[in-house]
Design a protein around this nucleic acid. Structure first.
Length: 275
DNA sequence: AATCGTTCCTGATAGC
DNA sequence: TGCTATCAGGAACGAT
């Protein structure tokens, strides 16, 4: 599942390949993604235009095009954005293929079609980005800022971390790992964390996201980078997907708990509940 | 206002 | 062997 580190690894792979190059064509499959501009809109605003800059906001990739249009791509759960020659025989679940100057094909593959490919004409703000909260590495994000955001909130810290409108880019895997590293029970009400605890959460968030980027992301089932390669951070996971296994720190069995319809994994000894 | 639950989508896997 | 049920989860949306 692509979260901030996976999307960042893809951005770093694609930016040097695509920036400065012009989109030459587009082929669209017959099945639409959950959120997808029409082929006509995509051709109108993307084809014929040069990519000025490729940026990441949370889990979104933002393609800034010459002329002022914006292409927004979200990989959802199983989306892949691959660059290179089209494989033969053709891969299943390829929904869009952009032809780019220099003989490059940029193609979007997504088994479950939770992804988004949306174009916004010049002068139109990409609406989904308005909902995206602070970047975890932004200097505006401090322990005090997080404390203020969580003030009075009764929802569990796990759900709070997953809320992209507060801090963007953290999904289920990294939320579990961050809470383990910070020694906090996932059910702790967000509003009950102290400044010191928020400081731990923020430090561990940044450490883990940075390390995961360096390791090329986490591949547990579907994630591949823009070259089609797996990540390595799955080897560093301490709790995610490890229900019943002994905690690497204390040996107690890792527990699975369902919160907001998502699995949380934690060590009941290292992450005790607040009284 | 804040929080929770549901929906979308398909392939892998478990259980009978 | 072949069937059905369950699970994975980001974000939008509806309900309370």
């Amino acid at each position: 599942m692509p979260e901030l580190p996976e999307v960042e690894v893809i951005r770093r792979g694609l930016a040097p390949l695509l920036e400065g190059r012009r989109f030459l064509g587009l082929e669209v499959g017959d099945k639409r993604l959950r959120q997808q501009s029409t082929p006509e809109e995509l051709r109108r605003w993307v084809v014929g235009h040069r990519l000025v800059k490729l940026e990441r906001r949370g889990k979104y990739l933002r393609f800034d095009l010459e002329g002022g249009a914006t292409l927004l791509i979200h990989l959802g759960m199983t989306g892949r954005l691959l660059a290179g020659p089209l494989p033969t025989p053709p891969l299943p679940h390829i929904h869009l293929v952009f032809q780019v100057e220099g003989g490059i094909n940029l193609y979007f593959q997504d088994v479950r079609r939770f992804g988004q490919v949306l174009v916004f004409p010049p002068g139109v703000k990409p609406a989904p980005l308005e909902q995206v909260g602070a970047e975890p590495f932004s200097p505006e994000v401090t322990a005090a800022w997080l404390l203020a955001q969580a003030r009075g909130k009764t929802r569990p810290i796990k759900n709070f971390l997953l809320d992209a409108r507060v801090m963007a880019g953290i999904g289920n895997i990294y939320a579990c790992e961050i809470l383990f590293a910070a020694g906090l029970h996932p059910a702790t009400p967000a509003g009950r964390l102290t400044l010191k605890e928020w400081d731990r959460v923020l430090r561990q968030t940044r450490r883990i996201l940075k390390l995961a980027i360096a390791k090329g992301g986490t591949t547990v089932s579907d994630y591949l980078n823009s070259k089609g390669e797996s990540g390595l951070f799955q080897l560093e996971l301490k709790v995610y997907g490890r229900a019943g296994e002994p905690c690497s720190r204390c040996g107690a069995p890792i527990v699975r708990l369902v919160q907001a319809g998502r699995s949380s994994f934690f060590c009941p000894a290292c992450q005790p509940e607040k009284d």
